[in-house]
């Protein structure tokens, strides 16, 4: 069995890459992809800890399935928004989408 520490290092790295992607990328599609990375890190953590704490049960996996489902829905919504923004402003650069301010 893979030690839990390994999994934590892996998911931590994955999550951090996602955070970096959200912060650093200008392209809205890439930002959405980075969000997917963070969600996947969480899903892996759920499976790992679920197996560790409740051996032989599937609680963690069920949660992971939910996360994947919601991620898919969210991505669909996000891409639809990106598409609308592109139609309006001919750009999907998040620097150009700064209307949410004073």
């Amino acid at each position: 069995m893979v030690p839990i520490e390994h999994i934590m290092v892996f998911t931590g790295a994955l999550f951090s890459i996602g955070v970096y992607g959200v912060m650093a990328r200008r392209n809205a599609v890439l930002v959405l992809m980075a969000i997917e990375l963070m969600l996947n890190a969480v899903a892996i953590n759920l499976v790992a800890f679920g197996t560790l704490v409740y051996p032989g049960q599937i609680n963690g996996m069920v949660f992971a399935i939910f996360v994947v489902t919601i991620a898919a829905a969210e991505l669909g919504l996000g891409l639809a928004i990106v598409l609308r923004v592109y139609r309006m402003r001919s750009s999907i650069n998040v620097d150009d989408i700064n209307l949410m301010r004073w």
């Binding site: 930002v31 620097d95 209307l99 301010r101």
Partner: peptide
């Protein structure tokens, strides 16, 4: 009000 810049990554930074 200057802290509300409108940039998503500013908000995301505060969030994290």
């Amino acid at each position: 009000r200057l802290t509300t810049s409108g940039y998503i990554y500013h908000y995301a930074f505060g969030f994290i």
